[in-house]
Design a protein around this nucleic acid. Structure first.
Length: 420
RNA sequence: GCGGGGGUCGCCUAGCCUGGUAGGGCGUGGGAUUGCUAAUCCCAUGUCCGUAAGGACCCGUGGGUUCAAAUCCCACUCCCCGCGCCA
């Protein structure tokens, strides 16, 4: 949700943003609803004012023992008129609210404008790509031979894009989580294991409407949705709160299983554990003062980079273009790790500054002094590790001639061995 | 799941029975005053519309009754206590 004042004062800025994102949005309707809405507020307020006055007159007349019947009948007609106006207002307000929830965020000036990922900009690369003196295998081949993943039975029991992790890969999964948790708490992020189901109000605060269809699972018969990432649960954690300015920034490390419908993904990454309905993730999430959010954004990015460096996985940092970026984000970097089996860099982490977009939807504000009006803070999120994708990269990059896997040094103490 | 008790403007609390402008205390910020870190007094401290003046809204949420609802009625929700069930 955007600041209504910015929208009213700079409609062209909004139109530019919508076209940069290649989004078809009924902006003229939105502006009309906004005008109607404010007009109706003024009219209902005036009507309520007369109603309040008459009510007072009735009360004082009754107190002094006079006859209030004329006033009461006047009140009846005012109440009726007010009811009609109020119904109108509620309708307009709802239409305005629905549209404003689907309007995407502003875009930072540093973001390249373009309609899709072809306009993304590679910022930097780290690490030497591994070279092998033998025929390499992809992660699917490797995990089948080593008995690390059972896809067939998962398909039988749950369907496509599910998996049973087995043997040493279960340990590797846990090792990544454990290492990530230690890594990030050393950097003073507060670890939080969140609810895996949250209600509609919380989810709407963190997510834009169409994502409900494409990524979010709904629990039947309950006002509950499975989180797509702990970001969703952490963003809403401080909803309706006014936070003391002195306690900012709040830096959290969310840990949770993540659930994704992957509805729009039809044929892509059909096999293996690269694109799945369920995985574990440690996520950085920061509530920041507006002035600090861009510095926090870079800091979070450097945290993931350092994490991948410790794992020894080559990666590149990509600045997403306006058309490729998520709609709640004003600027997003992806970290793409090298996947030797695919001979390609693939997304494993995503680092976004959402400005006050989520904070407005969730009413998360701060102030330094109680005599100041509270202001919206900024929210940022950045993956630290998403286990399945990182494991694909580890499996493919660290495979050995005999079809086994060398465990990255920093993970060996958690896995309990140096090879899988 | 059953029974009981609760939810009031940051926190605590009055008002609810008997409908008629939501009052007090604490905390926090600012100011005044007095030779001290203290005391006292004043102002501010929820949301929306508005440049402002001003006004409207706000008593867990949503309905209903009424000229009028924090107050009466119904449903839901969350918290606390007891019982039951349970990894």
């Amino acid at each position: 949700m955007l600041d209504p004042k910015i929208i009213r004062d700079n409609p062209d800025k909004i139109r530019d943003m919508l076209s940069a994102r290649s989004i078809d949005f009924p902006f003229d309707d939105f502006l009309r609803y906004d005008r109607e809405r404010r007009d109706l507020i003024v009219r209902t307020d005036e009507m309520r004012k007369t109603k309040n006055q008459i009510s007072l007159e009735i009360a004082s007349k009754k107190k002094s023992g006079g006859d209030a019947s004329a006033l009461i009948s006047k009140m009846q007609s005012v109440s009726q008129q007010l009811q009609v106006l109020e119904e109108d207002q509620v309708r307009t307000e709802e239409a305005y609210r629905r549209l404003s929830l689907t309007m995407p965020n502003l875009i930072h000036e540093s973001v390249p404008v373009g309609k899709d990922e072809t306009a993304n900009k590679i910022i930097r690369k780290w690490g030497d790509l591994p070279s092998f003196g033998f025929e390499i295998r992809d992660h699917i081949d490797l995990t089948q031979r080593l008995g690390l993943v059972d896809l067939e039975r998962a398909a039988k029991v749950s369907g496509a894009r599910f998996y049973y992790l087995k043997n040493q890969l279960v340990k590797l999964n846990q090792a990544l989580l454990q290492f990530a948790l230690e890594f990030i708490t050393e950097r003073k992020f507060v670890p939080v294991q969140t609810p895996y189901m949250i209600n509609r109000n919380a989810m709407e605060g963190a997510v834009i409407a169409e994502d409900f269809e494409d990524v979010i699972y709904k629990v039947e018969g309950e006002d509950l949705f499975l989180i797509g990432t702990s970001e969703h649960a952490i963003a809403s954690m401080h909803s309706d709160e006014i936070i003391a300015g002195g306690s900012l920034p709040l830096r959290y490390a969310g840990i949770s299983t993540c659930f994704r419908k992957e509805a729009g993904a039809h044929g892509r990454d059909q096999k293996g554990i690269f694109r799945v309905h369920q995985f574990e993730k440690v996520e950085q999430f920061v509530f920041s003062r507006p002035d600090d959010s861009w510095a926090e954004h870079e800091k979070m990015l450097s945290n993931v980079e350092e994490f991948y460096q410790k794992l020894g996985l080559p990666y590149r940092i990509v600045l997403l273009s306006s058309g490729d970026m998520g709609k709640v984000s004003a600027k997003t970097y992806d970290l793409e790790a090298w996947m030797a089996g695919q001979k390609n860099y693939r997304e494993v982490a995503s680092c976004s500054n959402c400005l006050d977009f989520q904070a407005r939807r969730l009413k998360i504000r701060f102030r330094d002094r109680t005599d100041e009006p509270p202001q919206y803070l900024h929210t940022l999120n950045c993956t630290l590790v998403a286990t399945t994708r990182t494991m694909v990269s580890i499996l493919e990059n660290f495979q050995t001639v005999d079809g086994h896997i060398s465990v990255p040094k920093v993970l060996q103490k958690y896995v309990g061995s140096s090879t899988i």
